[in-house]
Design a protein around this nucleic acid. Sequence first.
DNA 1: ACGGTTCAGTGAACCGCTTCACCAACCGGA
DNA 2: TCCGGTTGGTGAAGCGGTTCACTGAACCGT
Lengths: 330, 330
Amino acid sequence: MPRKRATIREVAQATGLSPAAVSYALRGLQVSEETKERVRAAAAELGYEADPIARALASGRTGMIGLLCGSLEDLWQQSLAVGISRGLREKDRYALILDAVGDPARERALAQQLRDQRVDGMIVQPLDPSAGFWKELCESLPVVAIGDSLAGTAGEVVFDNRRGVTLALEHLRALGHRSVAVLTSTRDSTPDRPADVHVTAEAERLSLDIEVVTAPHGLAGATAAARDLLAAESAPSAVFCFADSIAYGVYAAAQDLGLSIPGDVSVMGYDDHPMSGLLTPGLSTVDWDIDGIVRAAVRLIAAAADGATRRRRIIQTPTLRERGSVARLS
Amino acid sequence: MPRKRATIREVAQATGLSPAAVSYALRGLQVSEETKERVRAAAAELGYEADPIARALASGRTGMIGLLCGSLEDLWQQSLAVGISRGLREKDRYALILDAVGDPARERALAQQLRDQRVDGMIVQPLDPSAGFWKELCESLPVVAIGDSLAGTAGEVVFDNRRGVTLALEHLRALGHRSVAVLTSTRDSTPDRPADVHVTAEAERLSLDIEVVTAPHGLAGATAAARDLLAAESAPSAVFCFADSIAYGVYAAAQDLGLSIPGDVSVMGYDDHPMSGLLTPGLSTVDWDIDGIVRAAVRLIAAAADGATRRRRIIQTPTLRERGSVARLS
DNA sequence: ACGGTTCAGTGAACCGCTTCACCAACCGGA
DNA sequence: TCCGGTTGGTGAAGCGGTTCACTGAACCGT
C-alpha cells in the first residue's frame, strides 16, 4: 500500500504554520519570502503536492482546458486534438479530450461533465450546434467554438466557407468542368452546414451543374456513396468533397470500379489532411491551415481562461492546394 | 448569471429528509422504494445532479477511465483513442484522453494528474516504460498497458512481435528478397523495443541481409530517413517498416526520388492502418487487428475498475495482409 | 505618543457529497 | 411479553483544500 499522501495540514504542522499560510505560500501569495522558502522545503520533504480535486472543490478552478470532440473518428478532429494538445503545452496547460463518438446525447452529457470538472474553458466542435444546452454552457464558462456555430461563446474560429467553396468550384470551372457532384456527409465536421448555400450560389455564378449528395459518416459511408455516384450513367466529371476524408472514399470507390483519377473523374477535397499528399495522385484540396486554426483556438481559450472578457471571432481564410487529382477537361 | 446549482441539502430540505438519505436514495441504497421515488421527483424538480468533484473528493472514485497517450500525433495511438472511446461507451463509462505530446516529463505529470483526478483506472501506451513512476502508479490504481512494457499492471494487451516479424520477413523472403532494411523510429509506439531482437533472430534463420535504421519520429522524419536509405547505392530491395506510418514516409520518399513501389523497392508495414488500403499500391502489412486490441483493453480495464483483481495478460497475434507493395524479385 | 497603513499570518467557515456509527420502530418467534 | 434481527433513516465527521474576516506587530509621518 503506497503511504497515504501528505496533506496540507501535515505541512502546516511541520512548519508550525497554519494550513492557510501554507496554502498561500505555495501559491506565492501574501507571505514573506522566507516562510515561502520554509514551506517549499517542508513540502518537498514530505512529498506534498496539492490535491487537484480538493482544490477544484474549494476554489472552483483547475487550470485544465476541455476539448470536446463530436466524433474523434473524424480525421479532421484528430488533427485538431493533436494540435491543441501541443499548443496548450506551450501555454503550460493541458487538455482533457473527450469524444462523443458521434452521439448527440453523449455530447450533451460530456459537455456537462466537463463543466462539472471545473475546466477553465473548453474548445468544442459541436456535433449538434443547434442543441439548447450550448447557450447555457457558454454562460457558465468560456467556450471557443471551431466553425461558427455557437452563439454567445467566448470566441470562435470560423471558416470563410464562401471563399473555400469559391476556390474549389472556380478551380474546377477553370479546368473545364461543368457538371460536378458535391459530396458531403452527415456530420461533416469541418464546415458549417450553410456551406451548401454557398455552393448553390457559386454554382449559379459559374453556371455549373451541381448535384449534392450526402453520404453516411465515415470512410465506408463515403465509399459507398461515391460508388453509386460514379457508377451512374450520368456521372459527373468532377467530385468536390466537403472533407478530405470524404475524398478518400472517392479514391476507394474509383479503385473498386477501375476508374482512374483524374483520368475518369476529377476529385477535390476540403481540409488538406496530411495524408492527402501521399495518395496517387495527390489530392487537390482547399487548405484550411489547421495549424493556424489551432493556434487561434489555443490563443482564444487561454486568454478567456485567464479572464479576458473580450469576445473574439477569428476568421480563417483558405488557399487552394493543387496536387493532381483534377484534370483539365478537353 | 445561471442560477446556482441545487445542492444535495436543498433536495434534502425539499423532501424533509437528511442529506445522507438523499445521497443513498439517489444511488439506490438502503432506502425504501417509496422515498427513493420521492427523492427522485424532488431532484428532477430542482434540476439537481450530484457534483462529480465533490463526490470524487468524498468517495475517491469517479467512474472515469483515463487514457494516457504518449504521443497522440501517432496514427496508431489515434486509432487506439478512437476505439477506446467507442468501446467504453458501451460499458457506460467514458475516457479522459490526455496527450503527452512525446515528452516523457509531461507523461509523468499527466499520469499523476490522471491519478489525482481519481480515475477508476487507466489505459496507457507508455512513452518511456522504463520510467520509475509506473510501478508506483500501478500500485495505486488499475492500469492496463498496451504493448507489454510495464510490470505490475492490472492487465496488459501484448503483441506477439516475434510472430509479426516472422510474418513480414518470411513474406519478403518468399518473394525472393535477400537484403532488407528495417525502418523503425525513435518512439515507435506500436511494438516494444525488443522487437529488434526478433528481427535479428529471424534474419539469421532466413539468412537475410538486414540493416536497421532508426528514423526520427513523425512523417517528416521517416521520409528523410527513407530518402537517405533509398538514394544510397547499396539500397536494399525491400524496406520493412515498424509502423504503417513509417511506411507512409517511404512512399513519400519514393515519390520524391521518382522510384516506383514495388517496382524499384518493396515496402512492408506493421499495423494495418485504415489509410494503408488507399495508397497506390496498397501497403502490404502486418495486421494487428486493432479492434481486437481495443476490445481486450476495454474489457480488462472495465473489469479491473469494477474491482476484479485477477491480473490478465492478453496476447495478440497478427496476420499478414498482402496488398501489392511487395514485388516478387526475379 | 498617536492614529493610520501595510504586512504576515491565523481561525473557522465553507465547497458539496459520502460514510460511519448509531437509533427508533417494527417484525416474527419463543 | 420480551428479545434479537432487519429496515429505514439520522447526525456529524470527514475528504483536502481555499478564502474571508480579522488580529498583532511593525512602520509611517507628525
